[in-house]
Amino acid sequence: MTTTSPGPKPDYGDAWLQHLRIAVLRSLGDCKGQTGHESLLTDMVNAVHIMADRDQVREQLAWLHEQELVIAEVSRGALVATLTEAGQWVAEGKRTHPGVKRPNVTAAVARQALSIALDQLKR
């Protein structure tokens, strides 16, 4: 009897990082002025079940800054990030970027429809 090796195991850590990065970009897109504080972004990514602590979000903000998808600056001892145009394109699924998960475009359309519906309810 012979057994075959299942092949290399997937790197779940890398997949998690890609999900965290797109969650951060999309969260920034939802923030007023497309700018957010590391603490707020941590809460926002946790709200969509990408469980990350503040240090992990800070590390990914630095990575996204290196990739020119955000502008990250220290303000009052905390990291504040602003979405760049390239980052917005990636967040909206209009462009791909290595190391960032492509967003679910269907979910983006559903989010937009929900936003429009909520705006109409507010009137």
Rank of each mutant, 00 (worst) to 15 (best):
T2N: 14
T4G: 04
T4I: 09
S5W: 10
S5V: 11
P8C: 00
K9F: 13
K9Q: 13
K9M: 02
P10S: 04
P10D: 15
Y12R: 07
D14Q: 05
D14N: 02
H19L: 15
H19T: 15
S27E: 05
S27Q: 07
S27Y: 05
S27R: 01
L28C: 02
G29W: 06
G29M: 05
D30N: 12
C31M: 05
Q34W: 12
Q34G: 12
G36W: 01
H37L: 09
H37I: 00
H37V: 06
E38T: 14
L40K: 06
L41E: 09
T42F: 05
T42P: 08
T42K: 01
V45Q: 07
A47I: 13
H49C: 10
H49A: 13
A52S: 07
A52W: 08
A52N: 03
A52F: 00
D55F: 09
Q56E: 01
Q56R: 03
V57I: 04
E59F: 02
Q60V: 00
A62M: 06
A62R: 00
A62P: 00
W63V: 14
W63C: 01
W63E: 05
H65R: 03
H65N: 14
E66F: 00
E68M: 08
A72S: 12
A72C: 10
A72W: 02
V74H: 12
V74F: 06
S75Y: 14
R76Q: 15
R76E: 14
R76W: 15
R76P: 14
A78F: 15
L79D: 08
V80D: 05
V80E: 11
A81H: 05
T82A: 02
L83F: 01
E85G: 14
G87D: 08
G87N: 00
V90P: 06
V90A: 10
A91K: 10
A91Y: 04
G93I: 11
K94R: 13
K94D: 15
T96H: 09
H97C: 11
P98F: 03
V100H: 04
K101I: 05
R102L: 12
P103H: 06
N104A: 11
V105S: 04
A107K: 12
A107I: 01
A108P: 02
V109Q: 03
R111K: 12
R111A: 12
Q112I: 10
Q112M: 11
L114R: 09
A117L: 10
L118A: 14
Q120V: 02
